[in-house]
Write a protein that binds this DNA or RNA. Structure first.
Lengths: 204, 204
DNA sequence: GTCTATAGAAGGATAGAC
DNA sequence: GTCTATCCTTCTATAGAC
């Protein structure tokens, strides 16, 4: 499916993408069926395949859309800004994404968990280039003593791990905290404190 | 399949479990086929079903075995020990598990990602009880000023997120670091530093 | 554009020979 | 205990009416 033209086409296209995101993010690619997606979209199965060439095409477009937004928060780290504030702001952007786009986070996590066969090109290309660039920046900040001595790549991985955990492992956290509780409730304060302490210049 | 008796039965049982762990952890339950498991175990598909009642039975036994070992490191936190040393030791045990049992970690992660339908009982029961107990201990340590003021549940979630990330997102980290690099290489030092700073008593 | 009906392939499980 | 052959269900995808 290329660019949809009419209003109804755009609407159905969007309905399918949203339903597919819901289903794929919960059950994975193989675990999801066109019937599930069709039911959730309120369309018939053949109608899905009128809008998309195949099940795989739906999944592929979902991933493509995701990767664009996924990489944006990291790109916004400003070399001219105050180091600790820049990194803390990045943490908060990532946490906000986990809260606002948990399905996207889980879809991405599922892909990586399986060895990232479908997004290997993105990771080795666009993402690696950006991470290399920001890691060099963080290394320079640390060398200048503006933040504590931290391994740049591991710092970035830690930010990913800690923020995405609130989307990807949401089910587990809710079961442990008790059902009324929102796990992201205290996350903001906790992660702010964690990264402020980690990044404080030496000696402490 | 209950307890296998003969030597050959034990051997095949183990071959199947190992093959199933490999396949299930990479492709998820629905994404895995008995053919894949049989091929990897070097047995025929019907022979698998001589040892196990069904595909689901294999998966169930895999999960049951996993959960026992999964909970062990947390249990070993000693209320009588030195708080920071105890928590740091827990971090290292968890990191070691991620390194030694990455397939188990990914199998577990996949279950949570899907909403944990098959292990909900374990999480709400055994795991929650243990986490509640250790969270109370950490809260007492913080109240006594022996560690910094930290939210106990978020501390535990952070340990899980940071250590398991090295197993669950291994593919992504390798692609970004470059293929020769082992992501867990610098992890030990990075996480030690991170948690030492986080747990340092106030004021810093 | 949307539906019902169905073709065709894949996968879990069983029958039955050895 | 292990295999080949096969049943039966599920799922993707298409045909064709409206």
């Amino acid at each position: 499916m290329t660019a949809p033209r009419t209003r109804i086409q755009r609407r159905n296209h969007r309905l399918i993408m949203d339903a597919a995101l819901e289903v794929f993010s919960q059950h994975g690619y193989r675990g999801s069926t066109l019937d599930q997606i069709a039911a959730r979209a309120g369309l018939s199965k053949p109608n899905l395949l009128y809008y998309f060439e195949s099940k795989e095409a739906i999944h592929r477009e979902l991933l493509t859309d995701l990767l664009d937004t996924w990489i944006a928060p990291l790109r916004r780290i400003d070399p001219a800004g105050e180091p600790r504030a820049e990194i803390l702001a990045y943490v908060h952007r990532k946490l906000a994404m986990a809260r606002e786009y948990p399905r996207e986070s889980r879809l991405f996590a599922g892909e990586i968990l399986q060895g990232a066969p479908r997004i290997e090109g993105f990771i080795r290309g666009e993402l690696k280039t950006l991470v290399d660039e920001k890691a060099a920046l963080i290394r320079a900040w640390a060398a200048a003593g503006r933040i504590g001595a931290v391994q740049p790549y591991h710092l970035i991985f830690s930010i990913w791990a800690l923020t995405q955990h609130y989307a990807d492992f949401d089910a587990q956290m809710r079961m442990i905290l008790g059902d009324g509780q929102d796990p992201t409730e205290g996350a903001e304060a906790h992660l702010t404190r964690l990264f402020e302490r980690l990044l404080a210049p030496e000696p402490r």
